[in-house]
């Protein structure tokens, strides 16, 4: 059970949060101009790395804000947490 530091509320138990998959996948601004393959790339393809991964998390049972997390999936170490729209930290 992680202890997650919500950037708005502070440290809270993992059960207050919801994981939202890979971060920094921007919704295409002009979907109609994409080929089927390009759209499928956005829609379906997600990384599943053993190691450092950039993820979206939501403080669902708290402030309901979304934020980003850098997590090492091999040992679940949370390396960084930053707000939506902020630049990801250099690796």
């Amino acid at each position: 059970m992680f202890l997650i530091k919500c950037p708005y509320c502070g440290e809270r138990d993992q059960q207050e949060f919801k994981a939202g998959g890979e971060a920094h996948i921007e919704r295409p601004k002009q979907p109609t101009e994409l080929s089927d393959d390009e759209w499928a790339e956005y829609l379906f393809m997600r990384k599943n790395i053993k190691g450092v991964q950039f993820e979206r998390w939501n403080h669902a049972h708290g402030c309901r804000k979304w934020f980003n997390m850098v997590r090492d999936t091999s040992n679940d170490e949370i390396k960084a947490i930053y707000k939506m729209g902020e630049k990801p930290p250099a690796q």
């Binding site: 921007e26 919704r27 979206r56 939501n58 669902a60 309901r64 804000k65 979304w66 939506m84 729209g85």
Partner: peptide
């Protein structure tokens, strides 16, 4: 509600 909030906060702030 969760889905709408997600889009508002992340795609269309």
């Amino acid at each position: 509600l969760g889905k709408l909030e997600d889009y508002l906060q992340t795609e269309w702030p």
